[in-house]
Design a protein around this nucleic acid. Structure first.
Lengths: 332, 332
DNA sequence: CCTCGATGTTGAAACGTTTTAACGGCTGAG
DNA sequence: CTCAGCCGTTAAAACGTTTCAACATCGAGG
């Protein structure tokens, strides 16, 4: 079952030394064709599988990078991951995806493990960037601005929030809800800040924005928020909602339909991320689009540049873009 | 930058031997509190990070399992992954997600790497199960029946296809399209087989089913299929479509709307997987539900049982369930 | 005072590769 | 015939842990 056949056995079986087998594996060109065949045959016959731990221990490099995401079930992150993987595989590296599920305990565990594994680099959209601690492995922050000690690739979330809420204001809305949370997540804070700024720009009072905090950014939380929203007295109930991401917005949409309210008639909705499902929703969703794959691709590129001779941390920032659809159509 | 501080340095710094440091790391209970403190302090001060390669080389176990999926962007797989991860973390293992993107080259590369890494086990929804080759690492097939050499956890796809198409037939449809592909994917073949069986059960001719093969199972392919479908001469155009998964169905839905056709009026649609977004779609989607998280959880459980003394490969099969929504409402 | 067991600690031998410098044999030039 | 140079191969030394048997130290029981 676990014969654990090593390089020496292969060597013996092929009548050569360990070094030659290693050469066949790593520098096939240097070994004579005849010997190479013999060694390959032995490998095949014995079912030899190279022990990566030993290789890595000696050679020092790992051929792997990892991306730690906040929520593997959120299409936004899988789209970013696609960009990362494309860039990684061009560089001959494999990508391992890790799901912190927005839990900083899990995040810590994964980071610890990845550091111990000596992966070539770590991409992360952190739960709490402050807690990150340098351990020698290159790290790049994704969709999150850096405090300076790491490279980062981000999108201007404040601007995004501003775009979304300005749009709602221009459509005549004066009581607006923002749905999102927890506030420990930077993106949520930034998007809210943008929303507040939009109000200020328009000369509206700050209490025109009702912030409904959720425990997470999943569809179910959006549904819950919808119920809370409808529970508000009619006089104070917002006529529009800006959701911190599209999953929330989709949940909110479901909740509205279920409670017999019309979108955008009774409530206009704007989401964030413009995931593929946003356009296909019951009411096509107005959303703030981010360049997802490019985000990932750029992040991977920065990561790969980390061990260049005299590396300076770079911070790339993209601009979001508002995509208007039916869910926020002009109020009659 | 890369001081590469090892266990020996920590030992020297704390005035103990390597063995003691190792004990602090692995069996804290066995070392005297005072010494333990001293060692921990040294670790902290030097920023020591244990080298997992060395650990694994010596100790032989890896604390990691991996799940290789067909499409990380498909919510079905991320839901399965959630189940896997829950079970894995209960067993103290971390989960690495790998995306083969339905490409057997990538799949092979990932498998090779994972074998070399000596992960504790591999879960995989394979592109082509035949090509899988035993390498000593335990493997469990997910959402795919085994040819016998591995454990497997699957859902009865033939039954699922049958449920879907029977439902359409009962609603009066006599010309039905099935959309999906490539046929190299087992699930697609099985679901089609179920569709065919449904026709036979109802005494309908086999040509009542038009099979439109797609190149993949993503939303974009569904949109493409929609255009092909509408391009058919009206007399031969199906009145209903059964899609091999929900992503296709959502794409199809978009395409219909865009071309000014009504669902279910002009075309009834049934999807597969019942992903969360199915219920939130423009027209809530009738779909075949699979027990996603349970699938993952069970698979992980089987994997963990692999190295029990006298292990026999098990094959678990779940039943799918039809969830009827508006996209297939009764034909007037 | 001796013995015994318990408790902490340690030296040294693995684990399976990669790598380096050196080696032997062979060829062709001088 | 010698020698330089090349090619293919090799022995042996890492790499950084874990583990195991052995070793001190100490208190208690006889």
């Amino acid at each position: 079952m676990k014969p654990s056949v090593g390089i020496r056995e292969v060597a013996r079986h092929a009548g050569v030394s360990n070094a030659t087998v290693s050469n066949v594996l790593n520098r096939p060109g240097v070994v004579a064709p005849a010997t190479r065949q013999r060694v390959l045959a032995a490998i095949e016959e014995l079912g030899f599988v190279r022990n990566e731990s030993a290789r890595q221990l000696r050679a020092g490099s790992s051929r792997v990078i990892a991306y730690v995401v906040l929520d593997a079930a959120n299409p936004f992150f899988t789209d970013v991951a696609r960009g990362v993987e494309d860039a990684a595989r061009e560089a001959g590296l494999a990508l391992f995806l890790c799901n912190s599920a927005s839990d900083d305990g899990r995040e810590r565990e994964y980071l610890e493990l990845l550091h111990e594994q000596r992966v070539e680099g770590i991409l992360i959209t952190p739960v709490d960037a402050e807690r990150l601690t340098d351990r020698g492995t290159p790290v790049v922050l994704v969709d999150r601005e850096s405090n300076g000690t790491y490279c980062s690739v981000a999108v201007d979330d404040v601007l995004g929030g501003e775009l979304a809420v300005t749009h709602l204001i221009e459509n005549g809305h004066r009581r607006i809800a923002m749905i999102g949370g927890p506030l420990s997540i930077q993106q949520v804070r930034d998007r809210r800040e943008g929303a507040v700024r939009a109000l200020a720009n328009a000369g509206l009072p700050a209490d025109a924005l009702t912030f409904l905090e959720t425990r997470g950014l999943q569809v179910a939380e959006g549904r819950g928020a919808g119920e809370r929203l409808v529970g508000l007295p009619a006089s104070r109930r917002p006529t529009a909602a800006f959701c911190a991401n599209d999953l929330l917005a989709l949940g909110l949409l479901q909740s509205m339909t279920q409670q017999g309210l019309k979108v955008p008639g009774d409530l206009a909705v704007v989401g964030y991320d413009d995931i593929e499902f946003a356009a296909a929703a019951a009411v096509p969703l107005t959303s703030v689009r981010q360049p997802r794959e490019q985000l990932g691709r750029t992040a991977a590129t920065l990561l790969l540049a980390e061990n260049e001779p005299d590396h300076e941390h770079r911070h790339v920032k993209f601009q979001p873009e508002l995509v208007v659809r039916a869910s926020s159509a002009v109020k009659r």
